[in-house]
Amino acid sequence: MCVGLPAKVVTLKNGMAVVDASGARREVSAELLDELEPGDYVMVHAGIAIARITEEDKSETDRIMEEI
């Protein structure tokens, strides 16, 4: 449905963020996310940062498996 790419925010300026994913950098829109800071991780889709990523997938899934 929607390929999402986890990426790290490098710089922020005028609602745009330069993000880095394994050494590939691109400017994306950061308009949908408030209070972003360099170093934050975001999910990027079609040139837009659509969500903040708050955890690694491993610790997330470990926790879910503990809970079920």
Binding site: V3, L5, D20, A21, S22, G23, A24, R26, V44
Partner: peptide, 13 residues
């Protein structure tokens, strides 16, 4: 796969 190549491939699928 070099990091940069992996990143670009990730972005563009």
């Amino acid at each position: 796969v070099a990091d940069g190549v992996r990143g670009v491939c990730g972005m563009l699928g």
